[in-house]
Nucleic acid binder design. Structure first.
Length: 256
DNA sequence: TTCGAAATAT
DNA sequence: CATATTTCGA
């Protein structure tokens, strides 16, 4: 970022490793985009490194995100704040394993935990694995193996999940006699459809054999500020299998 | 100790 | 308002 855009200056910066060049003053959108590009690049690089088992080189420069985060909140410019905001709920590579599973929720909780689609899928997978009768918070937690996720949080999520499940049982199987003519007033508590919710009305899967097709998240027609969709598109059915080597449950995917 | 319903909070 | 956290009795 420089105030002069003459060729010499640009060359100098590029020689020093700049990957782009912004002339002051900078519009916030420019920065925001740049930020995301760099972030994604790092993500990519990091993943590549992981593949080769070449993680954390000694001389590896600190991530930009880390640097921004390291800035005391009180000192952060509004620009930095604006840049940080969109990433708060972003799933970073160090929170995820090679399967795209979340392994740490530290940054998924702002004031309260956000159950992302992926985290929820893991939850569902664990519940399905156990069977709805044996799926209690502690066991679910044990299978999910997500750092910093508490039993209470799982219990809470389970409570809502079960509530939704009950709604389903009432609405779905009632295919037979619907003498009522469609229009049940909205005020009726026993509604025909469970209210639209971010996940619970998407994964009716409590049954172990649920091969419901990959559900897309058109949860809310809300903004998806980033161009690409989640890359967790490891569609298919996820379950857990016992890994006798590691002596623990590991993810198992059924693709189709 | 853990569950889970219900009250509370965000 | 949807959904996450806390409380509290079983």
């Amino acid at each position: 970022m420089a105030s002069s855009g003459d060729t010499n200056t640009v060359m100098k910066y590029v020689a020093n490793g700049a990957s782009d060049f912004l002339l002051k003053p900078v519009r916030i959108e420019e920065l925001s985009n740049i930020w995301q590009h760099i972030f994604r690049k790092q993500m990519q690089d990091h993943k590549n490194n992981n593949m080769v088992g070449n993680l954390e080189k000694p001389g590896h420069p600190p991530s930009i995100l880390a640097m921004a985060r390291a800035t005391p909140a009180t000192t952060r410019s509004t620009a930095t704040e604006a840049l940080l905001a969109p990433l708060e709920n972003e799933v970073r590579d160090d929170m995820v394993n090679y399967n795209g599973e979340i392994t740490d929720i530290r940054d998924l909780r702002k004031s309260r935990l956000t159950w992302t689609t992926q985290l929820h899928r893991q939850f569902i997978a664990a519940v399905n694995h156990l069977g709805e009768d044996k799926a209690v918070p502690k066991k679910i937690l044990g299978i999910m193996k997500v750092k910093h996720l508490t039993r209470e949080q799982v219990a809470s999520h389970l409570q809502v999940h079960i509530k939704y499940r009950m709604q389903l049982k009432k609405s779905i199987p009632t295919t037979s006699k619907h003498g009522a003519t469609l229009s049940s007033t909205a005020l009726d508590k026993t509604q025909d459809h469970p209210s639209r919710s971010q996940y619970f009305n998407q994964d009716g899967c409590m049954e172990i054999m649920d091969y419901s097709l990959p559900r897309d998240d058109l949860s809310s027609g809300s903004e998806c500020m980033l161009e690409e969709q989640n890359d967790y598109s490891s569609e298919g059915f996820q379950d857990f299998r016992w890994d006798s080597d590691k002596q623990e449950y590991g993810p198992c995917f059924w693709n189709f």
